[in-house]
Write a protein that binds this DNA or RNA. Sequence first.
DNA 1: CGGTGCACAGAACGATTGTTCGGTAAGCTA
DNA 2: TAGCTTACCGAACAATCGTTCTGTGCACCG
Lengths: 198, 198
Amino acid sequence: MALKNSQPLDPAYLEKLQDYYAEHKVIPSYSVLATLWGISAKSWVSECVRRFEEAGYLDWTPDRQLKPGARFFERRLAHDPVQAGLPNPALADGYDLVTIDDYLIRVPSRTSLVRVKGESMIDAGIHDGDLIVVEQQPNANVGDIVVAIVDNEFTVKYLDREKGTFVLKPANKAFPVIRPRGRLEIFGVMAGLVRRTR
Amino acid sequence: MALKNSQPLDPAYLEKLQDYYAEHKVIPSYSVLATLWGISAKSWVSECVRRFEEAGYLDWTPDRQLKPGARFFERRLAHDPVQAGLPNPALADGYDLVTIDDYLIRVPSRTSLVRVKGESMIDAGIHDGDLIVVEQQPNANVGDIVVAIVDNEFTVKYLDREKGTFVLKPANKAFPVIRPRGRLEIFGVMAGLVRRTR
DNA sequence: CGGTGCACAGAACGATTGTTCGGTAAGCTA
DNA sequence: TAGCTTACCGAACAATCGTTCTGTGCACCG
């Protein structure tokens, strides 16, 4: 006989857990889970956890502590508008798993955020007030968008080369090319962009 | 006599914990923390945790489970280029605490990501391949950037009104205004934007 | 109407948790 | 050199953890 498949679980359970996690950044104990889910038996919590684990929403650390699984953070990356608005997140595909942090940040210890001032990079889709994700490093390649330190301020520009020296080119015809005298101090390279619109 | 101040702790402890958290998304138990930190007495772990809590890096859930504190995720939001590149994250200010997820997402259960196709919104700084953070809701206001379902596909456009009916306006003169026949189906409202550039 | 799953409850239990307390060795101060 | 503080170890302990096993009531099915 084939393996018996477990029934799918109430999606509300997962949502409640995700909400709890969003608030506390931690997976609670079984007894807390029980009250969270309105269940009164830890044994049943255990079974539910087992199924969520089976489905990839929960996982275990090497020390057998419960932790979010690969699919725990997946936010519906909506490719297909057909039935996309359903409250029930159909288990099929159309998902991509990420926290946005993981999507943008590869090396946390070398990554900073810089807020953009002004419109000088607007043709590159970088607007006033946007946050630039910067990987700090002292050098970059021509064509990279870099964050440089000019006159004690951060500037976001394209890095280019003119007659052997580096220059900073804006993405806006109304702004001049910056030709630094002396060494060009590069803070880091742009790795991403974040904008909040409400 | 004034309250006795605790000594600051080895910053390496915090980094190790942050790395562990980045990998597992969970705060480990004291015994795991002990091996993580190379400490052999849980009592000393307890003391270290107390100090991290005092400093705002750790906190407790209402059920007294250890969880990340307010400053645990703080990423340097670099305002001031002076000494910004220092490896030592000076404790002063210049910080803003956020995970990018928290910065962009207010209601996890109603939030989706939609990948943008094409250049029709380029004047709004929305490029091909960008991810739009969408708060799902069935209606919106004129002037909002909305994600609508047109011909079974997602479209990102400005919502506008013409002679009493809603229309979708691109932010690119090369594209036409969309005047839907029948009801306009709105998937949600744009709340943010994420772009990865490397 | 009798069986068979399923969704849950409840008790019992050993393992693990975090706390408390006493101890020690090193370093600074007077 | 005596005394205090600090960084850590180790043992003991009650509380809590997650597991396991045994019910129980309902729904469906023949």
